[in-house]
Design a protein around this nucleic acid. Sequence first.
DNA 1: GGTATTCAGTACCGAACAGTATCGCGAGCA
DNA 2: TGCTCGCGATACTGTTCGGTACTGAATACC
Lengths: 221, 221
Amino acid sequence: MMSIVNGPSASGSTADAGASPSLPVRIRRPGREAVRRRLLDAALQAFAEFGFENASLDQVAAAAGLTKGAVYSNFAGKDDLFFAMMSDQVMRRVEAVQAVLAANPVDAQPRQTLQDVGRVLTEAFTEQRDWQLVYLDFWRRAIRDDEVRARFVAHRKVLRGAIADRVEQVLDGAPTPGGFTVDDVVTVVLALSNGLVIEQYVAPEFVSDGLFGRVLDRLSD
Amino acid sequence: MMSIVNGPSASGSTADAGASPSLPVRIRRPGREAVRRRLLDAALQAFAEFGFENASLDQVAAAAGLTKGAVYSNFAGKDDLFFAMMSDQVMRRVEAVQAVLAANPVDAQPRQTLQDVGRVLTEAFTEQRDWQLVYLDFWRRAIRDDEVRARFVAHRKVLRGAIADRVEQVLDGAPTPGGFTVDDVVTVVLALSNGLVIEQYVAPEFVSDGLFGRVLDRLSD
DNA sequence: GGTATTCAGTACCGAACAGTATCGCGAGCA
DNA sequence: TGCTCGCGATACTGTTCGGTACTGAATACC
C-alpha cells in the first residue's frame, strides 16, 4: 500500500539519509489537517462510487493513501466520517455560490431570469456528479433514520435559503403568473434539479439542453 | 416464527385433525404461485423499508412467513428476487394505469389538462411510498452496474411510453407555449415526480397542494 | 537529550449475511 | 398403501466489514 509520505509530492530523497542528524530536516509526518482533508476527499469519492453501505472504510482509507487507523483516529466511525464529509461539502459549496453571487451582482444584469439559475444548476450537476450521488444517499438515509433526517433538514435549510435569496432577486417582488410563492419556486428548483439528475445520469438523451432553465422560465415569464 | 399455514386466511382448524384420513381435507401446502406472491410482496416491503443492501433475505422471508429456503427455491439469489419484484410491480402498475385510462377516456373530459396528470401522479406517490423508494433504489443501482442499468432503461421505456400517450392526448397536437416537445414534457413529468417525492418525504411542508399539477399546467396553458 | 504524548499502522474480534448442502414432510401417483 | 419426488426448513460455511486493542514511530516538551 502506498504510504502517505510516498505520495505524489513528498519524497524521502531530499536531504536526510546520512546527513547530520542534528538538523531537523527529515520526513515530516503530514499534519492532522492534511490527513483529515485526504480522508474527507476520499470519502466523497468512495461513497459516490459505491454508495454509503457498499463503500468500506478500508477502501476509503486506501483511496486516501492511509489505513483504517487514520479514520478512527480522526472520526468516531463511519457515520461520523459521512456527516463530516457532508458538512465539509456543504460549506465549500455555499462559499462557491457566494463567490458567484459576488462576481455577478443582480444590478449588473437586469435581464437576468430564472433561466440563469437553471443554467448554473445544470452545470453544477453535470460537473458535480459525486456530490449529487452522495446527496441522494444522504436523503435515502434521512428517510429511514431520525438522526440522519435531522442533519439532512438542517443542511437543506441552508440550501433553501441560498436559493430563495437568488429567486427573490430575480422575481424582485413581482408575482409569478402561475401564482407561485417563493417557497414554491424553491421547491420546484430543488425537485427539478434532483429529478433531472436522475434522468440524466441514466438516460441523458432525454434531457435536452437548457430544459431546466426553460421550465423555470415558464414559472416567472 | 409464523408459519405460512397460520396466516390471516388459512387455518388448520376447519376440518382435518382426526377426520377420516381418506378425504383429502388436510393442511394444504400453499401452491408455488402463492409462495412466490408472498415473497415478491415481502420483498417490496423489506427493500422499501431498509433499502436493498440493508434488507437481508432472512428479513424478507420472515416477512413472508417463510424462510430463506423458500427464497432460494424460487429465485436464483437476492438480485434475481429484486428484479422479479420490480418486473412484477411494473406490470401491476401498467395494468392499473390502463384501467384508469379506460375508465376516463379523454373524449369524456374535453377540459382535461396536464393538471390531471399531476394530480394522479401526486396521489400515486403519496399512496405508493414503497414503490417510490424501491424505484429510487433501482435507479441508484443502475448508476453503478451495467446489468442493472439495462434493466432499468427497459422498464423506464415502458413508463415513458405510457406517460407520453397520456401527454399526447392532453396536448392533442397543439404546440406548447414554451416550445416543449412531448419528450421534454415526459422528462419533466418524471423528473418533477421523483424530485417532489424527495422533497415531500423529508420536508412535506414545502410541497404545497397541487404544486405538481400547477407547474405542469404552466407548460401547456 | 531524554521523556511523554500524539497519532497512524497492524492484528484481531464478533456480528451479519449471502449462499450451499442436506433433511424431512407432504403431495401425487401407481 | 407404499414409493418417490418436489419444495421449503434447517444447519452450516466462508467472507466481508465495522469496530477495538495494542504497537511503534515521530513530535513536543522539559
